[in-house]
Amino acid sequence: MNRIHYLGESWKHLILILGSMIVILPFYVMVSFSLKSPGQIERNEGGFFGTENSMVDERCVKLREPDRNAIAAARDRFEGLDDTQIYRALLAEIETDCSMHPIVYNYSKAFSEAPLLRYLMNGVIVTVSIFVIQVIVALPCAYALAKLRFRGRGFVFGMVIFCLLIPVHAIALPLYIMLAKVGLTNTYAALIIPWTISVFGIFLMRQFFMTVPDDLIDAARMDGMSEFWIVWKVMLPTAIPALLAFAIFSVVAHWNDYFWPRIVVTGNRDLFTPPLGLREFKGDADGSFFGPMMATATIIVMPLIVAFLLAQRRFIEGITLSGMK
C-alpha cells in the first residue's frame, strides 16, 4: 500500500522538481556569474563556481600600462635588458599585481564602479521612512475608525474603501507633475511622499483594532490616559503581529520598487535606490562587466531572500496580506 502510494507520488515530485529548476534558473545564473571570471562567463565553462583561482583585471593592466618614463625609471632595476624586455617585465609585474580571485574581482568592482553602498543606504532610508510614516498616519486613523464615535466616521471609512481602488503606480504621472511644480523632484521627499498614505494599512489596522476588547481602552481611560497615548501605548503593543506583517509587506514592495524611483529621480546618482543603481550599471556595461553586474544584483536581491528563508511563515503572511481581506 505504502509503496504504491510513494510510486503515485513520484510523478508529482517529478513535475515539481522540473518546475523548481525553471524557477531557480535565474538565481543560479545570477550567483554563478557573480563567482566567475569574464572569460569563463563568455565561454560558458567552469560550472557553478568557476574553476579559475585568479584572473587578470584587464582594465587595471591597461590603466597602469608602463609608458616611456616608467621604462626609463626601471632601467637600473633591470640592468642589461633592452627597452622591450623591460616593458615586458614591467607588464608581467603589473599583471600579477592586477590579478585576483574572480569573486574578489566581481564583488569589489560592484562596490567600486558605482557607489553601491550609497544606493543600499538610500534603499534603507527610503523603505524605513515610508514604513514609519505609514504607521504614524495610519494607526490613529485606524483607531478612530474602529473605536471612536464621531460624525463623519462612515464618510472617512468610505473614503478609505474608495481609495483602495486607486493603485499609486497608476497615478504616477499627475503625482510627478505635482512634485515637479513644488520643486521636489530629485529629493528623498519625492521618493517617500506618495507612499506616506497607505489606505491598505489603515484598512488592515482598523480590522485588527475591531477585535481588541473595549474594556482594555476603558481601563486605560480610567487611569487617566489620553487618547493619544492610548493609541501608542495600548493599541500599538496589541497590534505588533499585524504591524510586523504589514512591515514586511511594505518593505518588500518599496525595496524592490523600480517604477516610481525611475520617474522622480533623474540623473542624480546620490539618490539612486538599489534597483536604479543596477539599471544604471546595465546601461553602461560592456561584456567584461557581466560578473560585477551579477554581483550587484546578488547584493540587492539577497537581503530579502535571506530574511525570507529565515522567517518564511511571517514573510508569506506579510506578502499575501492583501489576500486576507
Binding site: 534597483p275 539599471r279 531572500i305
Partner: peptide
C-alpha cells in the same frame, strides 16, 4: 521576494 528589475536583467 526578489526585485523584479534585477531578475529581469
Amino acid at each position: 521576494m526578489a526585485a523584479l528589475l534585477a531578475m529581469a536583467i
